[in-house]
Design a protein around this nucleic acid. Sequence first.
DNA 1: AGAATTCTTAAGAATTTCTTAAGGTTTTCA
DNA 2: TGAAAACCTTAAGAAATTCTTAAGAATTCT
Lengths: 231, 231
Amino acid sequence: MTKPFSVLVVDDEKEIRDAIEIYLKYEGITVVQACDGIEAIEKLDEHPIHLIILDVMMPRMDGIAATFKIREQKNIPIIILSAKSEDTDKVLGLQVGADDYVTKPFNPLELIARVNSQLRRYVTLGTYEDSNKILNLNGLTLDPEAKIVEVNGEAVKLTPIEYRIVELLMNHPGRVFSIQDIYERVWKEPSYNAENTVAVHIRKIREKIEIDPKNPRYLKVVWGIGYKMEK
Amino acid sequence: MTKPFSVLVVDDEKEIRDAIEIYLKYEGITVVQACDGIEAIEKLDEHPIHLIILDVMMPRMDGIAATFKIREQKNIPIIILSAKSEDTDKVLGLQVGADDYVTKPFNPLELIARVNSQLRRYVTLGTYEDSNKILNLNGLTLDPEAKIVEVNGEAVKLTPIEYRIVELLMNHPGRVFSIQDIYERVWKEPSYNAENTVAVHIRKIREKIEIDPKNPRYLKVVWGIGYKMEK
DNA sequence: AGAATTCTTAAGAATTTCTTAAGGTTTTCA
DNA sequence: TGAAAACCTTAAGAAATTCTTAAGAATTCT
């Protein structure tokens, strides 16, 4: 499963960078490497980075400071790597600006869990505002907190994928999403031979939310383009 | 952009207070500092405070307890700062009265997001819902102060973890929490390989609070998404 | 040391998701 | 205009995932 995230790994030891890269790639996360702070800044400009893993014990501290500056502007979570033996004060100072830390030697699974946790939090915080509001369109209601969809007051039981499709469309009433759009935004991976998969789910959704699935009132097709939720 | 809010930051470390102040000021929020609970009480009398950010790990615990008492009267939201390494139970006790918490090291922007979120809620709700109030849902009762759960008036004995899960769910009736959400909010660390751990606790809770655990009335599953407490 | 709590493992049940395939509808363009 | 191509709908069953439950091991508390 590919995730739409890329992580910048900053460490002066190549073996560590490579090891982390292997584990993150296995998670479907793109990895960009940098061996010091200076290089990290360049990479941050070149690539869209969603999280930084940073070894505190590197020769060139100025680069690290600069990295932090950039984070302030870009709001990217930072996970710090540090050895237990390291100077506590120095590490502590850095930690004030960090989101999480892992001490070396570290369990790769734990690092991955923390990376995922940060990415999740980062994403949900970003979309926090509108993702909690109850949506309503002509009697079709969606409650993002309770994950409940209702048609004219009657609860409808949707599966997770069905729910996510409805949520996507209802968040942008009237906007047409191609099948690829839908697949990529719901499954969070590139669509390949997935046209019919989406179509089948559309059908199932109609079966549940439409009074007359053959003449849908809410979930309409736009021929040759995609689907949309009627405004 | 100036906001009509002032926040009291209580921490014994000056650098942390200053760092927080810088970020909040940038948001247009007024900041009042206090280095311990005693001082916090004075400041609460002197200034109109709308929210408190409180470090749990401070030398003088009595002052903190007093701060909480004041909050109870004044209905001010509290966000707790805690280090991961800290004694979980001690932190937990405090958190019961808190509205949100952030673990150190923290991302300043995340702290700001949570501050804004609390202030928003505080304003929109008008009268802030006290998290020490006894919760009641269809005969299921939770008393956060006494840490007692009752089903139709009959006390149920929950273990600490069980209690925290029930409390989390009851604080947000109807809202669905994924297993990862639950793990991270109850255990306060990222979850990996913890899916079944939570599931087992859910089962134990049902055994205790449900009349018919196979057809739960309170603690419901939302397939593929998580669990929730029925509204 | 004994009791209570928490975690791990594993097997089976329930539910969801995907694939395949056939038939219908709309568009294209000869 | 009419036939071909592209696109959409529908159905059914296989595959995969998720949930429940139980039992016992490991850990923590008293």
